[in-house]
Design a protein around this nucleic acid. Sequence first.
DNA 1: GCATATCCTCTTATAATATGAGAGCTTAGA
DNA 2: TCTAAGCTCTCATATTATAAGAGGATATGC
Lengths: 254, 254
Amino acid sequence: MTPRTHSLEKAFTLLTAVAESRGKQSLSVLAERVNLPLSTAHRLVSTLEGLGLVVREKKGHYFIGPVVTDLMRNISPHDVMARVSRPFLRDLAKRFRMTVHLAVYEGEMVTYLAKEIGGRNTVKTTEGSQLEAYCSGVGKVLLAHLPERERERYLSEGPFVRLTDNTITDPAALRDELHRIIRRGYAIDDGEILETLKCVAVPLKNQHGRTCAALSISGRAEEFTQTFIRNTVTILKETGRDMSDRLYPSVSGL
Amino acid sequence: MTPRTHSLEKAFTLLTAVAESRGKQSLSVLAERVNLPLSTAHRLVSTLEGLGLVVREKKGHYFIGPVVTDLMRNISPHDVMARVSRPFLRDLAKRFRMTVHLAVYEGEMVTYLAKEIGGRNTVKTTEGSQLEAYCSGVGKVLLAHLPERERERYLSEGPFVRLTDNTITDPAALRDELHRIIRRGYAIDDGEILETLKCVAVPLKNQHGRTCAALSISGRAEEFTQTFIRNTVTILKETGRDMSDRLYPSVSGL
DNA sequence: GCATATCCTCTTATAATATGAGAGCTTAGA
DNA sequence: TCTAAGCTCTCATATTATAAGAGGATATGC
């Protein structure tokens, strides 16, 4: 195994602490929080400050520096996510001979970041496009894991247009469905967009355990038996975990 | 002088290179670009990857990881900038007994991040508020340093409402004014908002030398003699440099 | 299908470098 | 003036990063 540069890890931990403190904690406090001797912490913040990753307002008030924002200049986190996820999606698509999607929630809509077609192309989504959230597997997963306040706002805004007999159009019913999704840990699109199309979707978590994306497999309705769903959910979750580990290593590592 | 943690500096340089490469360069190339032996670079990216600061799409394709975005969660870069700048503004305000502003360009408007009142409060700006760009000192500085394409778009869109006899309302005249501002390195608001109010403004640069904010001093028109302006510009520029050094240390340091 | 190149990973001896205890400084406030 | 909080510095020590080079994996070309 490749050895790690420990000072770098310490510095990052400290940087995270600085970010979280938002100017409210002195170096001594920060040092204690991340279990570093004060003098070490001091050396590290000085270095970070020299790099512009940390700025000091005045004694006892540290902030993440503007240089951090700058690192992201010209970079689309969505694009990065899509690229890194692609091989995982491709695997799933090939294995199930079905269509796999990766999506995020943005502005009350679902944005599809990546799509891999394993069998017939039954779904007419395109990468980068946005669709309503209330009627798809990924959409419902993402809604379910929204902070309560935002979820309720979504529910109160509607309207939820009926696309098939199975579409959930009643806010209360949708709320129940979302709760069920949280409990079960996955969502089913039971032909809610098209009678002939079903799908199962699971959440992807970031390092804080917050849902940041959703992963789904869609196929012809008749293939979605109970056993199929059970197996698929297991595999999806596994893959989801692998993807999270790749994108947000702190979840499991160290 | 506090000693620096060199491995951290190397790692940051490498991280910057990764960010700039946007997935287009292999580790060997990146290592060369930042003058690191391949094996060292390898150890460092592995560590960075373990922290989620770098993700690998596949061999030879590295990206900044989503964790970087996450560091900025709940943090307003503007707020940080304002806080760090405050002491500098306060100094200037006290020294000149005039009003000092820090502002950025955003969505074709100028956002005032910080205001410090040294003498009489002659200007009715408030922190966080937005104003038109074409008629103020900071506004013109920021417009002048826009990329040409954006600047031309601004000029073509108008309208530039006349507020006083001195307001520049003709796009061509405004274009000339902006060129002059680039040449001179500072802007004058020659009573373009209020007859009785003048101001001088200078740009603030980030580590890449790009103008990212503007700093101004405003006062009663009769105080703005040629000599006063000359002196003020010198001092403003000096302060601006100090502020940049604080916010973007790479400008001068290392 | 083989050859070649590219890119990455690992091992290891060596020395550089980070480490952290503690002492001392600076500043703000009482 | 005194106190305390917060920061900075020094320095002996050994941990730790270092980088050359060899080897492995994967892609590219013929």
